[in-house]
Design a protein around this nucleic acid. Structure first.
Length: 413
RNA sequence: GCGAUUGUAGCUCAGUUGGUUAGAGCACCGGUUUGUGGUACCGGGGGUCGUGGGUUCGAACCCCAUCAGUCGCCCCA
């Protein structure tokens, strides 16, 4: 085995059924997002570092250790995008789309994070996502969540997925809560895990979703975010929930749901499955009203989510396959010429056609069988002289003669 | 970045307490059928046992290192 020709760690090749499953996820998301009147936005896969390091938080892991960054020959410090919300907002600012709000954007493409690969986590992975930029209203949050739900519904995945919902409040509420939380955990400092001691300094909210048993034992008595929301934040959260109720979308309030990036506020949500082990979050997002200003743009509200295509594809099982093709088997030079024209015309009509360019009849029929052909057209000298072709049904093996003139019509059906 | 675990043919795996030319199934190629696939029978190609060191008369098997996969932690989709 030629080990020296393996793909780079954490990357992989996608083809066959796995590739089809991923494409199906993206295609479905694309179709649903159009119904929701989102426009596709393609931003570059790399950006200046500034686009990410401030919005995501200088101390966040993504910035401190997970960015694929490098110097260009011109001396720019650029980074392969680890996520796309900051990129989309940057684009809105760069292109003056701030004057054309609300902006509704859908994207799909590769993201990069330099971290330890494991199931459902790669260094290059594909995300789809939606950003609704401009409106501050809670209905926008509902819009975006509904879109995510609908995509998963059309993929047939909603049975195994729970929507977790929480609020991070506005800046005032969050600061007040953070102060209380730090006070509480500082009192119990000796019972905190090592990881959480670090979080206490960097990102105390993160202690809430710690997986450490000792940490979790402290949570029931910890101050609750919902009890520290100011009126504005309470109203916002309340209206998001009423909005989801109105659409009949199920969700579960989750006190421990926290988002990693600094730009989030108010609504936070994650769609979680039990079926993927530790990588159970399949879609996650929230509101990010402060992001634009962090990028040096105007005050501009926004809400959105991103979903991992790799993870969704894994849940899919079997993706819908391609339709069975028609195979064409010519024998002899003359027949080859006629066959190639025939194949050309069938394909122009959208019929999936496979043809081999070498081999005897046996070999070509074997090939036809392997590609799962439903019918095989056999065209030799004898048939050519008689002005017909043999159409062989690959399931039963029956063959019938079809006049060349009628062939296209017969096979297009 | 940390911890655990695995690494034998394209794929899934055997390989007994270290002992002669490392096996099977599937896949692939050829033949039985030089104009008929999918079933059957016969035959064939393909492996520096992840890599590099070491121990030994002898290593796929024991030791060390390294790389890669998998699972978990951190973090996140």
């Amino acid at each position: 085995m030629a080990k020296q020709l393996q793909p780079v760690k954490g990357t992989r090749d996608l083809y066959g059924s796995e590739g089809r499953a991923q494409r199906h996820v993206v295609d479905t998301a694309d179709a649903v997002s159009r119904a929701y009147a989102y426009d596709r936005m393609e931003t570059p896969i790399f950006e200046q570092v500034e686009v990410f390091n401030r919005p995501l938080g200088e101390s966040s892991d993504v910035v401190t250790k997970e960015m694929f960054d490098f110097q260009t020959k011109g001396g720019d410090h650029v980074v392969l995008r680890p996520e796309n919300t900051a990129g989309v907002v940057r684009s809105v600012i760069s292109n003056g789309l701030t004057h054309d709000l609300p902006g509704r954007y859908f994207y799909a493409g590769p993201m990069f994070r330099y971290e330890r690969p494991q199931a459902g986590r790669y260094r290059q992975f594909t995300q789809i996502g939606v950003e609704l930029i401009g409106p501050e209203q809670p209905s926008a949050d509902v819009d975006v969540i509904a879109c995510g739900w609908q995509i998963l519904a059309e993929l047939g995945l909603t049975d195994h997925i729970t929507v977790h919902l929480n609020t991070l409040g506005d800046t005032e509420s969050r600061n007040a809560y953070r102060t209380e939380l730090v006070a509480y955990f500082s009192d119990h400092r000796n019972r905190l895990s090592e990881d959480s001691l670090a979080r206490l300094e960097k990102n105390p909210l993160r202690i809430l979703d710690s997986k450490d048993e000792g940490d979790r034992a402290l949570l029931p008595a910890a101050p609750k975010f919902v009890e520290h929301l100011n009126v504005l934040s309470q109203d916002h959260y309340g209206m998001v929930k009423t909005g989801l109720d109105n659409l009949g979308l199920p969700y579960r309030h989750d006190d421990t749901l926290v988002r990693g990036f600094d730009y989030y506020c108010h609504t936070a949500f994650e769609f979680i499955t039990e079926q993927l082990g530790a990588q159970g979050t399949v879609l996650g997002g929230g509101r990010y009203d402060g992001l634009s200003k962090l990028l040096g743009g105007p005050q501009m509200a926004g809400v959105g989510w991103a979903a991992g295509v790799d993870r969704l594809a894994m849940l899919l099982g079997e993706a819908p396959g391609e339709p069975a093709p028609v195979a064409v088997v010519p024998l002899g030079e003359q027949a080859e010429v006629v066959a190639q024209k025939l194949v050309f015309e069938l394909r122009a009509r959208g019929v999936r056609v496979d043809m081999n360019y070498s081999g005897n009849m046996k070999k070509r029929l074997t090939r036809a069988n392997k590609v799962g052909a439903r019918q095989t057209v056999i065209l030799g000298e004898d048939e050519l002289n008689a002005g017909i072709a043999l159409v062989r049904d690959m399931d039963g093996g029956e063959q019938r003669e079809v006049p060349l003139a009628r062939l296209i019509e017969e096979l297009s059906a």
